[in-house]
Amino acid sequence: MPLSDSASGALRAATAMTVLGCSTSATAALADYPLHGAQTLRYLLAAAVLLPLARRTGPLRPALGRAELTRLALLAATGLFAFNVLMVQALRHSDPAAVGSVIGCTPLLLAVLGPLLARRRPQARLLVAAAVVVAGAAVTQGAGPGDLPGFLYALGTLACEAAFSLLAVGLLPRLGPVRVSAYTTALAVPMFGLTGLLLDGGRMFRMPTSGEGAGLLYLSLVLTVLAFLLWYGALGRLGPERAGLFAGLVPVTAALSGAVLGSAALRPAELLGSVLVGLGVCVGLAVVKAPERARPAQAVPAGR
């Protein structure tokens, strides 16, 4: 029996955020690799997989307008390039728990901005559900030491995380998840590559160790290719307000994966936070109807 749009969207969103939460070990493995070089390799490999997938669903250039090209460039610049750079800067000034607590506000931000950008009033019950998710994420993540620059960098990372979803909403009905993912990853390659050449020169690349190579493969193939496709597929089915609730799963799955891998013990606060996140997600999915899915403007497959 086929899943409904809501159930399919929920499954995609939950899987995408689980993959993201489990990426902490892969990211840690690349701590000593030059940032811009690692991200260039990551998105280059992801684009090499996504562009052929997009080609299989039809022409790679379905008459992209100037507005679409601009939105794609902004999406790559904020959701991919600036997000990763600001995240690294935030972690240099603050504890990961403090940074995670700020970024954990993503569900609440999407619950407010999603309806406003669609010229709708945010629904009070969805805001309550998002607040419960944020509280659960905060309990799971905890609070750590930091300074004002770290907090400001974390706020910038939060804005970029929201842009990753909000800028894609208007592109998905016509381009579909595959093309949006392929185009943005391809655009991110020169952004990181040129910046790396300017800042690091020939030091931006070196032969990765076995652990770094495994981390790059996870970040490029599992996180960037698989999770991007799942997340953008979920956005088209749930809308940013409801899909955003699943961002609360990131600190939960990060904590659970650490416990499974034996790198960190599971604390009672993390179990409580998991319960709160699950409660908020269930409430949010129950009280809000799914948005009507726009039909493509022309016969371009949605890439599902």
Rank of each mutant, 00 (worst) to 15 (best):
7 A>Q: 15
13 A>S: 11
15 T>Y: 07
15 T>Q: 03
19 V>F: 15
22 C>R: 08
24 T>R: 09
28 A>V: 06
28 A>Y: 13
29 A>C: 13
32 D>Y: 12
33 Y>P: 08
37 G>R: 14
38 A>K: 03
40 T>G: 05
42 R>W: 05
42 R>G: 03
43 Y>P: 09
45 L>R: 03
50 L>R: 10
50 L>Q: 07
52 P>H: 10
60 L>V: 02
61 R>M: 11
63 A>T: 13
65 G>T: 15
66 R>V: 00
67 A>Y: 02
68 E>W: 06
73 A>W: 09
75 L>S: 11
76 A>C: 05
85 V>G: 12
91 L>R: 12
97 A>Q: 11
103 I>Y: 11
105 C>F: 12
107 P>C: 02
112 V>P: 13
113 L>W: 09
115 P>I: 08
116 L>V: 13
117 L>E: 11
119 R>H: 15
125 R>A: 14
128 V>C: 13
128 V>P: 14
131 A>R: 07
135 A>R: 06
135 A>D: 05
138 A>N: 06
144 G>K: 10
152 L>T: 10
152 L>Y: 05
156 G>S: 14
157 T>W: 09
157 T>C: 15
158 L>Q: 00
160 C>G: 09
164 F>D: 06
169 V>P: 01
171 L>I: 01
173 P>K: 08
180 V>S: 03
180 V>K: 07
182 A>M: 04
183 Y>I: 04
190 P>G: 01
195 T>S: 06
196 G>S: 12
197 L>N: 00
204 M>K: 07
211 G>L: 13
217 L>F: 10
224 T>N: 10
227 A>W: 10
229 L>T: 05
233 G>H: 06
233 G>A: 09
248 G>L: 05
253 T>N: 12
255 A>T: 01
256 L>R: 05
257 S>D: 07
259 A>Q: 09
259 A>W: 15
264 A>F: 00
265 A>T: 13
267 R>C: 00
268 P>N: 07
269 A>H: 08
269 A>R: 15
270 E>C: 03
270 E>F: 03
271 L>C: 04
271 L>W: 03
272 L>S: 11
275 V>C: 14
284 G>R: 10
290 A>W: 01
292 E>S: 12
294 A>Q: 15
303 G>L: 08
304 R>Y: 14
304 R>K: 12
